[in-house]
Amino acid sequence: MDTKAHADETINHITPYRIYVLVWVTLMVLTVISVGVSYFHFGIFNIVVALAVASVKASLVALYFMHLKYEDKITWVFALYPLGLLALLIGLSISDVFFRAVVSP
């Protein structure tokens, strides 16, 4: 088990409690912001703000809580690639759904 202890020192990052609490406070503030914004009407900007805030929150969770910040490149690739595929699925489906010729019955 000695190798393991050694490994932990070299390959594994220990995040202090303080950082986690700080991230949590930020996440809560962002949640309040997104709820607050939803009471105002900015048209299209509502969804833009909501998604932007959600993405910042998600990035914080991934980077700090999930330690993505300290992971190697290949983990980043497999964490981000699905998002690219999701964009592809949505984007190319839309190229169909919203460009169909209207067929009169």
Binding site: S34, V35, V37, S38, F40, H41, F42, N46, I47, A50, L51, V53, A54, K57, A58, V61, A62
Partner: peptide, 14 residues
């Protein structure tokens, strides 16, 4: 992480 997206998409539509 998933809930972070579900919440604004479902509950916070202006």
């Amino acid at each position: 992480l998933i809930w972070i997206y579900l919440f604004p998409l479902l509950y916070l539509i202006a």
